[in-house]
């Protein structure tokens, strides 16, 4: 796959960024069709939908770093925890 050579792409990193791009695109469409209201959930601050996505993605990065650096368990467990956390924050955050 020649296009993956550009910018030293690898299949997993390309899939990662396509995933992030799809999430951002879906969120943009959702926001245009139905603008979000700022609300207060279990997080200590009032957040919009975009804020909650940012918080979820940033915490997902640190969940992965924590698992990679300080435990020997599989990265897929970190990925599963991050997905569950993303849903929790988006729904009740």
């Amino acid at each position: 796959m020649n296009w993956l050579d550009w910018m030293a792409w690898t299949t997993p990193s390309a899939m990662f960024f396509i995933g992030i791009g799809c999430i951002l695109l879906a969120m943009t469409c959702w926001e245009v069709l139905s603008p979000s209201l700022e609300r207060k959930g279990f997080l200590p601050i009032s957040t919009t939908r975009g804020d909650r996505l940012f918080i979820s993605l940033l915490s997902a990065a640190f969940i992965h770093l924590g698992v990679i650096g300080f435990t020997g368990i599989s990265i897929w467990i970190a990925f599963s925890v991050a997905i569950v956390w993303l849903f929790i924050v988006m729904k009740w955050g």
């Binding site: 910018m7 030293a8 690898t10 997993p12 990193s13 990662f16 960024f17 990265i75």
Partner: peptide, 23 residues
């Protein structure tokens, strides 16, 4: 920044010699 993410997953010797090493 995306390029840096790509680099971080590989062992790079030169532009054409690189191996995926994951995490």
């Amino acid at each position: 920044l995306m390029t840096v993410v790509n680099y971080s997953l590989q062992d790079i010797f030169d532009a054409s010699t690189r191996y995926f090493v994951g995490i």
